[in-house]
Amino acid sequence: MAFHTWWLFVVTVFFISGSPGPNMLHVMTRSVELGLARSTLAMAGCFIAVVMLLSASALGLAALLAALPGAFTVLRVLGAGYLLWLGYKSWTAKDAAVDLVDGQGVPAISNGRIFRTAFTVGISNPKALLFAAAFLPQFIDSSKPELPQLVVMILTFGVIEISWFFVYALGGRSIASALTRPALRTLFNRITGGVFVAFGLAMLGSRT
């Protein structure tokens, strides 16, 4: 891959990855709820999911899903349903943070559950497979071996994605200092819940 092609890929991915979406919103809310240190588990879950989707796309799974639209529809509905469920949980959390069930406000959620929930959020959008299948080939030099180029692009995407996770997590900590009042916490939970529901409904309404 030529340097100028890689640089164009970096700039494009920078803006795509930084756009607010379910992964970034989830990392930010975990940072608000659990602190920056424990939100790294959410970052890890979303990050591994993204890398798996990109790798699967590179290996041709996206083409398989495109050839089996019924399977893609099932995955899309399941992913949308999970986002709607997260939205419901956040909306109904009232003045407590999502998944905080200890009466003293101590996070009762386990590290494993933080990771699993984040991984499910990241992996629940199969459209990322088709996006990667349409996006990655545009930067491949057909005159050179494809696999090394795909590896470079996936690693580059991963570095940029995890960097944006930290940006959103740090933003979440800034928001957390303003959410000590129960009324503001409730408002924040309902806004984030509404955004998750909007993502889920948008996924259900998609036909591609």
Score class of each variant (00 low, 15 high):
Ile123Ala: 12
Phe115Asn: 08
Ala2Ile: 09
Phe188Thr: 01
Gly35His: 03
Pro126Leu: 12
Gly103Met: 11
Tyr168Glu: 06
Ala128Ile: 11
Ala42His: 06
Leu150Pro: 00
Trp164Tyr: 14
Ile140Asp: 03
Gly112Ile: 11
Val195Gly: 07
Thr208Asn: 07
Val195Pro: 01
Val197Lys: 01
Leu54Lys: 02
Gly205Ala: 07
His26Leu: 12
Pro145Gly: 10
Leu201Phe: 00
Ser177Glu: 12
Val50Pro: 00
Ala37Thr: 15
Glu33Ile: 04
Asp102Lys: 10
Leu155Asn: 02
Gln104Arg: 15
Ala42Met: 03
Gly103Ile: 11
Val74Glu: 07
Leu184Asn: 12
Gly194Pro: 10
Met28Asn: 03
Phe115Met: 09
Ala93Val: 11
Asp102Pro: 00
Arg181Asp: 15
Ser90Ile: 01
Leu130Gln: 01
Gly87Asn: 09
Phe47Val: 02
Arg207Leu: 13
Thr186Phe: 00
Val152Gly: 04
Leu83Trp: 09
Thr29Val: 13
Ala176His: 11
Ile140Arg: 01
Ala37Cys: 07
Gly112Cys: 09
Leu25Thr: 08
Ile154Cys: 05
Thr117Gly: 09
Ser31Leu: 03
Arg116Thr: 15
Gly70Cys: 13
Thr120Tyr: 10
Asp95Ile: 05
His26Met: 13
His26Ala: 12
Ala80Cys: 09
Phe72Gln: 11
Ala2Glu: 15
Leu78Gln: 03
Ser55Asp: 02
Gln104Lys: 13
Pro148Gly: 01
Phe9Tyr: 15
Leu61Trp: 07
Ala97Arg: 06
Leu83Phe: 13
Gly122His: 03
Ala37Pro: 01
Val152Leu: 14
Leu78His: 01
Phe3Trp: 15
Thr92Gly: 08
Glu33Met: 06
Tyr168Met: 09
Ala44Gly: 12
Ala128Val: 13
